[in-house]
Write a protein that binds this DNA or RNA. Structure first.
Lengths: 197, 197, 197, 197
DNA sequence: CAATAACCGAGACGGTACGTCTGGTCTTCAG
DNA sequence: CTGAAGACCAGACGTACCGTCTCGGTTATTG
């Protein structure tokens, strides 16, 4: 292991102030328009203290997300007997979140950041799929016989997340959320009517 | 109507040089790191000639895409009697395109640009869904009885596009493309086995 | 010759504003403590406009001096029949100037600048020797027989300037100026009494 | 008096390493461009160890000079019966020293330092006038009748030092040293010919 | 001989300024 | 009036140092 060779240890207070300021700046200005200088000023910190520990602003945002300063898990997947209803609840909440223009704007910022930084991308996916909760509920659906055996639950979960991402990217105007959710459920789970033979 | 009051007409040569330079810069540097100054130099054009006709770099990229300098339609959807095979062909080609790291990087740049500019976002969706071709093939599938009547074909097409976008965003390592495509088809079309009652 | 190929010509207004601001900053802060950023702000000018035309702050100060924004000629050498009296008047005025602490401080700043930049050094010498006026009066003194024929008038003028520079450098407290001037004249012109054989 | 209440005594090794490093840095970078951090690194010493004992870099340089790490006494004034010859020897050595560009550069650095710090200025004057040796030889010249009674020997010594300082400042190109020395002696001592009546 | 105190090397900290790069605007001249 | 060229003001970039503070560790003196 690395031996401490003198010097003050890293300041946790500074680290937290910087991450909080970063989160504020992402929300206020967006990823593209926020500046390291602005973060330093907001956090009452020297710029060098930022550059000492992070190489660029996408690293900052990545750590912000990992530490949960930016994006809560958007999905909370309930687990009743009714798979479709559980998913409906979860997706409705997620879509409603994105219908707030400020939230949509934040999400677009994070998508932009994700194009720069794989860690952010992964964290976005985690947030969007409730870090596996969604997939686990789908697996349960397979076990319960609500989904065909062998259903690719991981892929289904990613298709749901992807549909959501694209909706945010396309700025789909907040329409009738429940209709949209229903259509997405139809697309993923089938219309509930067995396909024609 | 606005009366033209003399002077030289807009130079088509300059316009084309600028769009070509923009396309080059997106590929070489990525959307976030390219500069208007760099484009002007690359196109041997004054900065003002750019600012006179476009308000910012996302407008430039948007026009580039519309004019086809940047992204070809990624899907070419065939129309045989077998829906699943038609989709398989289309998606396989699309996934293969994204497996080239340079292409994936370009796509991420365009996603970043799309977060800034709705026109780009829409154009990305168009490219990803072959400007409606995919949806039309799905509609045909409904008509042929390959999909249940009332299937939300638009939503299905967007889920497919979304799954692809998320794959690009997450930098999913190029694995077994045919398996992944198969899983995505399973997710969207069902496993081919009627869900248990 | 170089052909102008377009682009706005250099702004004379900006150039003057920068030189004036530089002069103000030298006086207010001193050469060592003034900043390019401060000058830019004072002159309401972008930093690049400074760096485009000057390589560093000693170049700025040099141009300031050449243009006369900073240091007037300190000597005005009269030309009566009495060499010693002419020099007395000139040196007394110069010493009195340096007795103002602000002036002394400015002179030290310029000496510091001169250690960086030969052009400044030469301009300081010019200012100190009235750009040759002093030497010409000494030559006249030789012609009049007030100085021995063959007297090294250039060296004498430099010794006078050097004595003054050293006085400024040493911060010799403002004492009895007329005594000091008299002693310097004695040193340079002799005590007026022929040396003992 | 202040009572020592325990603790390690000041490290002489560190003090010497710092002064040596300071001297190296003055020579290598010049006073204006050397840094405390560079000195600390060069001396393998913590910055605080410097700031604990010196307030700024001009203090460091001042102590360097007092301790003789930087500038030897440039004059060694011999004391034969011939005043002019004694001075000629001394000045020739001094001028020859300054003809080495590295020495001239060091002297300019010290002049720059002297503009910041009166102690350095005084030490420079001391070095240049051999700490009074020159003046004492001039006094001897008065006693011997080589100079008029009442000659202002202090002022003469300072004029000699000043002429030398100005020569260094002006970067007078190394020309014929013996001629220059001769002219300076003429300027100070007279041409050796009694002035015309 | 433990406790205390001042020292030491190392290096993180909040800052200021550097010199460069780019954004968007404005100004010239050529066509 | 367009377009190439490029100067302009503004301000962020990432780096270098400033002078202070905080570590772990090392001598001395003192109770």
């Amino acid at each position: 292991m690395t031996v401490r060779r003198g010097g003050a240890p890293r300041s946790e207070a500074a680290r937290i102030a910087i991450l909080e300021a970063t989160a504020r700046q992402v929300v206020e200005r967006g990823f593209a328009h926020m500046t390291v200088e602005g973060i330093a000023a907001d956090a009452h910190v020297g710029k060098q203290t930022i550059y000492r520990w992070w190489s660029d602003k996408s690293e900052l945002v990545a750590e912000c997300m990992v530490e949960g300063y930016l994006l809560p898990d958007l999905l909370t997947v309930s687990s009743t007997a009714d798979l479709r209803d559980d998913l409906r609840r979860a997706l409705t909440a997620q879509f409603a979140f994105a219908d707030d223009p400020a939230h949509a704007s934040l999400l677009r910022s994070l998508i932009a950041a994700a194009t720069d930084n794989a860690a952010i991308a992964d964290r976005v996916r985690q947030a969007l799929s409730a870090d596996g909760l969604l997939r686990r509920r789908l697996d349960q659906g397979v076990a319960d016989g609500d989904l065909p055996p062998g259903s690719p639950t991981k892929t289904i979960a990613e298709a749901i997340a992807g549909a959501f991402v694209l909706r945010v990217l396309l700025r789909t105007p907040p329409g009738n959320v429940s209709d949209e959710v229903e259509r997405l459920l139809d697309a993923i789970l089938g219309t509930g009517i067995a396909p024609a033979e």
